[in-house]
Amino acid sequence: MTSRSSRLAVALVATATATLGVTVANPSPAAAAATICYNTSQAPSYASTANQAASIWNNATSNLTLTANCGSNLRIYQITGGGSYAVRTSLGNGRVYIDTQQAAQYSPLRIITHEIGHILGLPDNYNGNCAILMSGGSAGTSCTNPYPSTAEANRVTNLFAGTRSATERSTDSSGATVFRDSWPAALAPVS
């Protein structure tokens, strides 16, 4: 198609959609929102908590949407024992395991939001600061903050902004990355 024909076709589509009251966004490819589909069928006790965690990430980032049950980029599992952890197979893809014993001691929402943070590209930050989501269990059992800091949210936004090539986003150089030990072992009951 010639350049003039292309411009005419774009103008006709824009006029038709404007007449119909339809707004057509023309974002650059780097600004397009990424959708990560998560599945909670293996974590029924934590499905509503996972939905809250997804909402937190959706509100904290500008180009990322976590959507329930539209696919399986991210699978969330409920386990008993062994600790909560994440396995990122590539940026935005992987598995999150929620340990029911840890979730009885730490905020389940903080745990799930933190573990999803690993899937979204964030490492642990064991500084004990409750305001830092990725500090995980180092902030103690009294910390219930499930919100990423501005720096953490900006990092995720940048990772999904197209600043990395498709190859970098789809594979890690060493394969799957496992994030364990974000949460101290379950405390033994006092007898």
Rank of each mutant, 00 (worst) to 15 (best):
Y97N: 04
I98K: 04
A14H: 13
G136P: 02
S149Q: 00
H114K: 09
P108S: 01
I111E: 06
N158Q: 15
A14F: 02
E152L: 05
I56E: 04
V24Q: 11
R95K: 13
E168Q: 15
R7W: 10
I76W: 04
R164C: 12
H114T: 10
M1D: 08
H114V: 07
V190I: 12
T163H: 13
S135L: 06
R155W: 12
T2C: 12
L109E: 00
S5T: 12
A47T: 15
Q101N: 13
T2S: 15
T2Q: 08
N39M: 03
I98C: 07
A68Y: 07
Q101H: 09
P148C: 02
H118I: 06
T177I: 15
S48A: 15
G83M: 03
T89W: 00
T157I: 02
R95F: 09
A30E: 11
L8H: 09
L8Q: 12
S3W: 12
N145L: 05
I111M: 09
I112A: 01
A104T: 05
S182M: 11
L109C: 01
C70E: 03
V96N: 02
A186G: 10
S72P: 06
V190H: 10
Y106L: 03
L91N: 10
D172F: 13
R155P: 04
L12Y: 11
N63Y: 04
L8F: 11
S72C: 03
